[in-house]
Each structure stands twice: as structure tokens, then as C-alpha cells.
């Protein structure tokens, strides 16, 4: 059989060999205190497990943690014991599903809907899960200072809980409005922080952070353009989320340097827990390459205020592009 004199073999995709021999050196660029800011996102919270694995391959260690909803749980696990956090998070995200969060009784939901109670589901099983995962019962037992963000249901104000009982604050921070019951703390009712600060970067700055690492939760494909009521609602949800995130990042990046770890943008529904492992693993790959590239681009000095991020749709808004310090993917390394 004749061999073609020229074979058109596509050149292999050369990926960088990133095997860490020693941690990527980034910490000296980040003024202290360094805050990890963790967004909410339901099942997409597993993304933060992948991001933390990538961060563990650098020499960065956080001084404070602040998170909303799913992010407040990740923060608490990390804050309680940074050394065991990664394996505990893998346990959490392999166990967690919608039934743990809201129970499995659709009959109970229907009856709650009819009775006009304040939520369709109860939070007893979520409470049991939190008490199982965490040993700490009070914020003071956490090794890294941690704050959980919830929304004051009456006033709409974002509220950061950083002292007192831990479990009620985490339940409040993740009390999806309408779905899970508002949680009463010190006589006031709170719901999920998503209604005020799903990515609490501004609160981090107001609480004294001098640099920030953003651990977002990725997003799903934008909902299709359609006149159907449910598709419009999904679309509105995309729009509101993106807008709130832009406002938070614009405020914070005008004050301090912010590393925005890249996240997967093709995830399933926020309460669909089937893809959590895949999402975490692709987040790890993206973040590891990003951190590698940041290390490669940086000189010796401290970062100045700005948004250190991958250029792309996430940061194309005019509000944000003025602060953007683009982190371009580097050419393949040998």
C-alpha cells in the first residue's frame, strides 16, 4: 500500500507540564489581609472545591474567608481545618443532592404551597448535613476568620455573620427564598445572600481585605431567548446575576487587587447535583493554568488594585474593563 509522501497529521496539542515541584509563588504579590471570596451557586458550589485544589498548589494562604450560600459552607469547611478541607469537600460534593437540601416529599411541598407557609420545604435535613460535616458550632472555633453572608429579609441588606452560632448563619446564608425557610437570628429573619451579595467582594473590602481571590461557581449556558414564561425567568436570573457580580467586582477592583479564578461556563441547572464532580475537575484545570500564567506574568512587586482575570465575556462590561489586567494564556511550555 502506497504511503502518501506527505502525511497531514495534525500537530499534537501541547499542554504545559504543570507538575508542581514546588508551589507556584504568588503570595508575595498579594497585600495582606488576603480574602478568599466565595460566591453562591447551589450545586455549582463544587466548582470551589476544584478551585481550592488549584490554589493549594500555590503558596497563597488566606487570612480571612467570606462566602455566600454554597460559598459559606466551603468557607466554613476551609476555615475549620485547611489541611483536611479538600478531602472533606470531596466527601460533601459526592454526598450532596437535592434531597439532602429540600427533602424528597413533593406532597409536603404541595401542602406547604397551599398552606401559604414561608417556604416550600423545611431545612431539617440541611441542618443535619451541616452538623455532620462540621465539628465547629460557633464561628470562634474556626481557625481562619470566616464570615457567612445572608440577606435581611425585611430590609434587603447584605449581612455578614462572623461570630456566634455557626449553623444558623449557614442555614440563613443558603435559605433559597421561597424554597427554604427564612432563619431568625437575633430577632431578625434572613434569607439567602444571593438576594443582596451573591459574590460578596464589596463586603470583603469594607471589612478590611487588601487583596482578594474570587472563587465564583461558574455558570450554565445562557437560557434561550423565548417568550415562554419559565425561559424568560431563567434569562432574567442570568441577567440579574451577571449585573450584581459586575457591580461587586467593579467596586472591589477599584480598591484592591483581585484574582478572579476562571470557572466552567457550561454547567447544568443550579440545583442539578449530577455534574458536581465533572464541574470541580474542569474548574481545577482552568484555575491551575490561570495561576500558572499569573505566576509567569508577574514581576516582583505587589499587585496594584485591579481585576486580574482572563479576558472574555465575564469582564467585557465597560464598568469592569477599565480595571482589567488581562491574564492571557501562555504559550505551551516544554
Amino acid at each position: 500500500m502506497a504511503v502518501p509522501d506527505q502525511m497531514h497529521v495534525p500537530s499534537p496539542v501541547v499542554t504545559a507540564d504543570l507538575t508542581p515541584r514546588e508551589p507556584m509563588k504568588l503570595a508575595h504579590h498579594l497585600p495582606h489581609p488576603v480574602a478568599y471570596v466565595m460566591a453562591g451557586g447551589g450545586a455549582h458550589g463544587s466548582v470551589q472545591w476544584g478551585l481550592l485544589q488549584a490554589l493549594a498548589e500555590t503558596d497563597i494562604s488566606p487570612d480571612v474567608l467570606i462566602g455566600t450560600s454554597a460559598g459559606s459552607l466551603t468557607c466554613s469547611i476551609l476555615g475549620e481545618d485547611p489541611l483536611s478541607a479538600l478531602s472533606r469537600l470531596s466527601y460533601v460534593w459526592s454526598q450532596l443532592d437535592i434531597e439532602v437540601l429540600v427533602g424528597d416529599s413533593w406532597m409536603a411541598m404541595l401542602s406547604a404551597a397551599r398552606k401559604k407557609s414561608q417556604s416550600l420545604a423545611e431545612n431539617a435535613s440541611e441542618r443535619a448535613m451541616l452538623e455532620d460535616i462540621l465539628v465547629a458550632r460557633d464561628f470562634s472555633e474556626l481557625r481562619i476568620p470566616t464570615a457567612a453572608v445572608a440577606t435581611d429579609l425585611a430590609t434587603g441588606k447584605a449581612t455578614a455573620f462572623d461570630s456566634g452560632p455557626l449553623i444558623p448563619a449557614l442555614l440563613a446564608s443558603s435559605a433559597i427564598p421561597g424554597m427554604l425557610p427564612p432563619v431568625t437570628i437575633n430577632g431578625r429573619r434572613y434569607v439567602d445572600g444571593l438576594a443582596s451579595a451573591n459574590l460578596p467582594a464589596r463586603l470583603a473590602v469594607e471589612r478590611g481585605a487588601k487583596s482578594i481571590v474570587v472563587l465564583d461557581t461558574g455558570s450554565r449556558e445562557p437560557a434561550p431567548i423565548s417568550t415562554s414564561a419559565t425561559k424568560v425567568v431563567a434569562r432574567v436570573n442570568n441577567i440579574l446575576n451577571a449585573r450584581q457580580r459586575r457591580a461587586q467586582l467593579a467596586y472591589a477592583s477599584s480598591h484592591v487587587p483581585i484574582l478572579v479564578l476562571p470557572t466552567p461556563q457550561n454547567l447544568g441547572a443550579a440545583l442539578d447535583f449530577r455534574g458536581t464532580m465533572t464541574a470541580a475537575s474542569s474548574a481545577y484545570e482552568l484555575a491551575r493554568q490561570f495561576l500558572f500564567d499569573v505566576t509567569a506574568m508577574s514581576g516582583r512587586s505587589k499587585f496594584s488594585p485591579g481585576l486580574y482575570a482572563r479576558p472574555g465575556p465575564y469582564v467585557t462590561d465597560p464598568d469592569l474593563s477599565q480595571f482589567l489586567v488581562g491574564v492571557e494564556p501562555t504559550a505551551a511550555q516544554s
Binding site: A112, A113, K116, S117, Q118, S119, L120, T151, L153, G156, P177, G178, M179, P182, V191, D192, L194, A195, S196, L240, Q244
Partner: peptide, 12 residues
Amino acid sequence: WYEVLALAFTHL
């Protein structure tokens, strides 16, 4: 529950 949801939306 419906008003809790609506209130959270207006806060946002």
C-alpha cells in the same frame, strides 16, 4: 413563600 420570593427579588 410566594411573597418571600417576590421580596427577595425586589431586594436584588
